[in-house]
């Protein structure tokens, strides 16, 4: 085994993963809860990365999908007592269907217009939640008394025992990373990257750009909806304030600062943006100021983010001669 760049990189990833998994053993409940928040935002960042990173669509309303997933879980769990984790797929589906409906008319909009429309969308959703739409969202106070998820009959309480919740979130995060990695390096992932790079050339090469844009929104929303489920189960009460425009901005920053289109980049982004301020408690009030400066500086000096995506290598050498035919 040689110490090529790739091996070193994989070694670092493995070390980080081991540290991550072992961390709760050494950390206080509060500190573990910070890791849980990082995991939630990493998941949200990864789901936004499908739309913003691969697809290049400037979507700043991701908190809306997150909210719809969380509210789906909260409403059904508190009204009908269906266990939280059973609602995981349903929360994703509700958010995905919502994305299908709202994204269809707006996906053809140019980048900056799309940005502003998605801001409008997330604000409308928040206002709808505050105004207790359909009489089921609980208005500005939100919904209390959501049950904790149960795994094999054991309730996992995110507040009392964040260490247990940590492993639930980590398992889902690992699953998400694996699945999104495969997605990134597939026909589907390439299609999104093509349309991000040049949508006219992509369409001209035979790629259904509108269809892919829409499906990216649906997959991203589906995943954000599932994260909403895990979030609702973690804190057991939700209110519209948890899903404001600023939440969308935080997700957006995680992807852009970390590295749009790069899974390690997004993970690093979540660690930096959610985790770092915890180490500098006394600087807490300067947090957003520093992020704002970082956004400007990154665009000027390193627009591709801290860890931009690495080019994918294809098994060109492993092909038989007879496979290389017209």
């Amino acid at each position: 085994m040689s110490f090529s760049g790739k091996n070193i990189r994989n070694g670092i990833y493995a070390a980080v993963a081991v540290c991550w998994i072992a961390a709760p053993v050494f950390l206080s409940n509060y500190q573990t809860d910070v890791l849980n928040n990082i995991a939630i935002y990493a998941l949200l960042g990864l789901s936004l990365n499908i739309i913003l990173g691969y697809g290049g669509m400037f979507h700043m309303g991701h908190a809306a999908f997150f909210a719809i997933g969380a509210y789906t879980t909260a409403i059904i769990n508190t009204s009908y007592g269906i266990p939280v984790l059973w609602l995981l797929p349903l929360s994703g589906i509700t958010a995905g269907v919502f994305a299908l409906v709202v994204a269809r008319p707006i996906i053809h909009l140019r980048g900056d217009y799309l940005l502003i429309v998605t801001i409008g969308m997330v604000e409308i959703v928040r206002i709808a939640l505050v105004n207790n739409i359909f009489g089921i969202t609980g208005g500005p106070n939100g919904i209390f008394g959501i049950a904790s998820p149960q795994v094999f009959g054991h309730p996992i309480n995110g507040i009392v025992s964040p260490g247990h919740y940590f492993y639930l979130l980590t398992a889902f995060l690992a699953f998400t990373i694996a699945v999104f990695y495969l997605l990134e390096h597939s026909r589907y992932g390439r299609a999104l990257k093509y349309l991000c790079s040049d949508s006219i050339a992509a369409e001209g090469s035979g790629i259904d750009t509108s269809g892919y844009k829409l499906s990216a929104f649906v997959i991203g929303a589906f995943w954000a909806g599932m994260v909403g489920n895990l979030y609702a189960g973690k804190i057991t009460f939700i209110s519209p304030e948890s899903f404001s425009f600023w939440e969308s901005v935080v997700m957006f920053m995680i992807v852009i600062l970390g590295g749009a289109g790069s899974i390690p980049g997004v993970l690093l982004g979540a660690i930096l943006i959610i985790g770092l301020p915890e180490f500098f408690q006394e600087l807490q009030q300067y947090r957003l100021l520093i992020f704002g400066i970082a956004l400007v500086a990154m665009m000027i000096f390193r627009p591709q983010g801290i860890l931009p995506p690495k080019p994918h290598t294809y098994p060109v050498d492993k092909l038989d001669e007879k496979e290389v035919t017209l």
């Binding site: 026909r187 390439r190 990257k193 093509y194 790079s197 040049d198 050339a201 992509a202 090469s205 035979g206 790629i207 080019p311 994918h312 294809y314 060109v316």
Partner: peptide
């Protein structure tokens, strides 16, 4: 072209 992608990926498009 998809300028930041490899030549091979361009053809795969």
């Amino acid at each position: 072209l998809f300028s930041n992608m490899s030549v091979l990926e361009n053809v795969l498009a």
